[in-house]
């Protein structure tokens, strides 16, 4: 009698553990999706800032039309990107173009002093940080999911939980993998 109870208890515990490990995989997969949505939100935010930035800079630095055009082109590319790879590549180019423009603005003291630009500057630096933290959060979640998929015992449930190893969000520019730049 007591043997039966012991076996039953063991079966129940194993079943509970199995459910737990499988649910962890499903949750890790959902976290990656949510983190991806956060990247999209932040990229959209940044994208929406650019027309305003372009208008502001144009007024003071008409000579920099090349830099401005590069920025507008990079923005267009990023809005049409759909896959993870495309988005990351376009994100990298847009980040570069923005840095190029901000570097150029150093030569225009009138522009730097304008109230419009000052307000934009805080908005741009917080947006850059947010984009960068969203990428980092996504990659952290991908790392957790991929670790769970690759390690026992959660690896048993990969099929039943319908999860697969996800790709990291890698921006081409290696600088972007580093600490977000803080400007003030």
């Amino acid at each position: 009698m007591s043997v039966v109870i012991l076996i039953l208890a063991a079966v129940v515990i194993i079943a509970l553990l199995a459910v737990m490990f499988r649910n962890n995989l499903v949750k890790a997969n959902i976290s990656v999706d949510e983190a991806w949505a956060q990247i999209e939100v932040q990229l959209k935010r940044r994208s929406d800032l650019i027309p305003n930035l372009v208008e502001t800079v144009k007024g003071y630095a008409a000579h920099e039309s090349g830099t401005l055009e590069a920025l507008v082109a990079a923005r267009a590319k990023s809005t049409s990107a759909s896959t993870l790879g495309e988005t990351a590549a376009a994100d990298g180019q847009l980040t570069q173009a923005l840095r190029g423009l901000l570097a150029v603005t150093e030569n225009y003291p009138d522009l730097k002093a304008s109230t419009n630009f000052l307000a934009l500057q805080e908005e741009l630096s917080t947006t850059e940080n947010k984009v960068s933290f969203a990428r980092q959060f996504y990659n952290d979640n991908v790392r957790k999911l991929n670790t769970a998929i690759g390690t026992f015992p959660s690896s048993i449930f990969v099929g039943s939980a319908k999860v697969a190893v996800r790709a990291f969000y890698e921006v081409e520019n290696p600088q972007d993998r580093e600490v977000p730049q803080v400007k003030f």
């Binding site: 949510e34 805080e122 940080n129 947010k130 959060f137 003030f184």
Partner: peptide, 16 residues
Amino acid sequence: NKQLYDLVSEICIAAG
């Protein structure tokens, strides 16, 4: 305090 609010929301994104 826009900057403080920005700072906090940035870290919230990093922390989820």
